[in-house]
Write a protein that binds this DNA or RNA. Structure first.
Lengths: 120, 120
DNA sequence: TGAACACTTGAACAATTGTTCATATGTTAT
DNA sequence: ATAACATATGAACAATTGTTCAAGTGTTCA
């Protein structure tokens, strides 16, 4: 989005000790960025559905499109995003390309998310 | 984004049995939607940083702004998003509002994500 | 070779997002 | 009351996103 390079806090620093302590314990900027990027990938219904489906079995693009009731093109675009995030892999069998999960943690992350959703 | 209400698969259905089986095992539409919405909240660096910081200790808005080097307004906006997602809660102490985590699973979800990032 | 099929890709577009700025609210102390 | 301060909020804006459409690969089979 919009980012100025003269970012600065515009109010009085109240608890300098707390800020410094937390700052020293924060992971590297890049790590947190990568983490956000990963969750961004999970932050779309179509992709969540694809991952959920692939956790069950490998599927070809056309089948995924039929399952989710979206265009094959849309699925293809999303599969590219998932592949770039190293969440899925694919194999070609003639004309057909089969996609499958490339990470065992996907379901675990989903389950943790579900725990949060379920509690109210 | 753009959604037509006459979505349809535009290619031949190749493995109808697979599609039907996966479809019958898929969670409800709403569940997957909520899951994506939750991860969308995690999909921003500023919010990830805020959550990471609050996992350490409760903080006031001004301190968070100083820690992340962003405006107090930007932090306030993001805290609202986090609160709506029931990830943080707040308490008022005079003029100062302190925010803290409202979910013990946040760090667990982050850790799962980190596992994925770390492997290459 | 060429038609048919499965899939990929790029441009275009509306919708959504995150920040900034200005202003409003709420609390304290004088 | 009024000033000072911490925070919240609304409008505006550029950047990003996800889908569609059209055209492109790549593979098979006649």
């Amino acid at each position: 989005m919009k980012h100025s390079n003269i970012d600065r806090c515009d109010c009085t620093l109240i608890h300098e000790d707390v800020v410094n302590k937390v700052k020293s314990n924060m992971p590297e900027e890049e790590t947190l960025y990568d983490l956000a990027e990963l969750f961004k990938v999970f932050g779309d219904t179509t992709r969540v559905k694809i991952l959920w489906a692939l956790d069950e079995t490998e599927m070809c693009v056309c089948d995924i499109a039929a399952l989710l009731n979206v265009t094959q093109s849309a699925v293809s675009h999303q599969l590219r995003v998932l592949k770039q995030a190293r969440l899925v892999k694919n194999r070609r069998a003639g004309k057909v390309v089969y996609y499958s999960l490339d990470d065992e943690h996907v379901k675990e992350i989903f389950n943790q998310g579900l725990v949060h959703i379920k509690e109210d």
